[in-house]
Amino acid sequence: MASRLLLASRAASYLRISVSHRGFATVLKDLKYLDSHEWVKVDGNSATVGITDHAQDHLGDVVYVEMPEVGASVTQGQSFGAVESVKATSDVNSPVSGKVVEINEKLESSPALVNSSPYENGWMIKVEMSDSGELNKLMGSDQYSKFCEEEDSKH
């Protein structure tokens, strides 16, 4: 469903028709976003990280998720793992710096959770942040929606 809307909107942008992006790839209000299409949800000093609905839609069926080990350090904007779909491989970057305190082990046996539930059951890692000031460099939901729209219109 999401992908049908995505395509409709893409066709529309190709034709230079303006369309509302509400209801297209879902973007959640209370999250922050990296320009490489990862989201972060902050709770105190703990940050949960995953890839966005837009990213999973572009990737297609996710068949393997490569994750760091608990205890590994991650850096804002740097790759911490990879997502493999039937079609392709994509690096996954961390929106925040810090130490990995938990990984979503369910993705080992059910990588498709990244497609079916990108913001909930498909989360990838939890990070203990070393610098919460970095959050200011990330996009809010409105800015990220606009960013996706612009990126798609280039196609």
Binding site: D35, S36, H37, L59, S85, K87, A88, T89, V92, K154
Partner: peptide, 25 residues
């Protein structure tokens, strides 16, 4: 084919978006 797929999705993580967009265009 795989490069094709990768060029689509790697784009998601590309630092030099303008260059990529330009090439596509």
């Amino acid at each position: 084919l795989w490069q094709l797929g990768q060029s689509i999705t790697r784009r998601l993580a590309s630092g030099d978006k303008k260059a990529v967009a330009h090439r596509y265009f």
